[in-house]
Design a protein around this nucleic acid. Sequence first.
DNA 1: TTGTTTACCTAACAGTCGTTAGTTAGGCGT
DNA 2: ACGCCTAACTAACGACTGTTAGGTAAACAA
Lengths: 209, 209
Amino acid sequence: MAQNTASKLNETSRSAVGRDGVLDIAARLFREQGYGSVSLRKIAEAAGIKAGSIYYHFGSKDEIVAAVLDAGIQVVHASMRDAVTALPADTDGETVLRAAIRAHLRALLDVSDYTSANVRIFGQVPQSVRDANLPTRRAYEAEWDSLLSRLQEDGALKQDVDIRRLRLMLIGALNATLDWFDPDRGSADALSHTYADVFLNGILERKDA
Amino acid sequence: MAQNTASKLNETSRSAVGRDGVLDIAARLFREQGYGSVSLRKIAEAAGIKAGSIYYHFGSKDEIVAAVLDAGIQVVHASMRDAVTALPADTDGETVLRAAIRAHLRALLDVSDYTSANVRIFGQVPQSVRDANLPTRRAYEAEWDSLLSRLQEDGALKQDVDIRRLRLMLIGALNATLDWFDPDRGSADALSHTYADVFLNGILERKDA
DNA sequence: TTGTTTACCTAACAGTCGTTAGTTAGGCGT
DNA sequence: ACGCCTAACTAACGACTGTTAGGTAAACAA
């Protein structure tokens, strides 16, 4: 968020990274290096300020990382919901699901350092910070559960799959791409097609009638 | 590995955790808490010795974590290969793939602190340690690629799926279970069935002939 | 019995961490 | 011109980190 709020200050003065600037840089460093090896001094240096100055904008390191985590979910949540609600009301289930998958993968791999930082560092962060991020997560998970349930009721999905488990499998699989995705080998959109193909139809060769 | 090598010392003397004991405990702590928040003093305390004593068995913290990472892959590699080679030569492709998935998930979720520690901390560890683990990883990946290629040549798998990408998707999805798997909600074996069902046949309701 | 090896211990080192207190300097409203 | 607000700065704190040097006691081989 706030790619560069150089706003409201005449450009001649010092950088004036501000709170949003620090947050942007923190998100990028967390995504690149993980939580443990990104110190406040590293963040400060990348932002062009000194470590102590960060405490003008944030009360603690936990507050920074909590803000990054929350923003990360909010970005992907908005991306996924917008993609689905933008479709005509009578769109078939397969198309809806494909759109949701593509939106999630786009936020994760193309758009947002915040979303990728969230996926990368959530498991490395102190328990209290994880807990603080949980409500935001639950809301996004509920969005998926709601979508998948609707598709199942419409008869688009098999009746015997457990929605919660399917959501965990699907999001887990998509998030795992962060460890190996290489834009030189194909776009996030192309990858989303492959994921949709596999999850929707499987990989088994079928001798259909 | 080496669940408890209390060997060759009469039991009356001090615990004598030894190199393997330290490694076991390190693997467990890494799995539970991640890399960054497990210090040598924590490992030592859990092992019932003092921090400095660890340097009798290991030259550095990196050496410990490297040993944990390598063992983690070796365990799951052996588990997966053994499961596949134990099958009759004429076993059909679907059954072979199901066995491989179950073996991977078992090593990850039931059997080995080393395998789960590897998956958990690989992305948190210094670059040099990651690099040292790469050859072992590549060997396991090659095992999967070989298996999947064979199934595709036999006509069991669709011809248009890229083996490398499929392997990344599949192992990524399986490893992601570590973040949410709860044995109270179902066994690893049961979960492996669900994964196999989804990957093999997809989740789309089909009106077969 | 003596000497060696094994497996630990104690104590300290330099470096890094998050965090705090107190200070400074430019821009703005009055 | 005055004082306030904003956004920095410097310098240091205690805690914790991986690591090292040197000592100790039991087990075993000769």
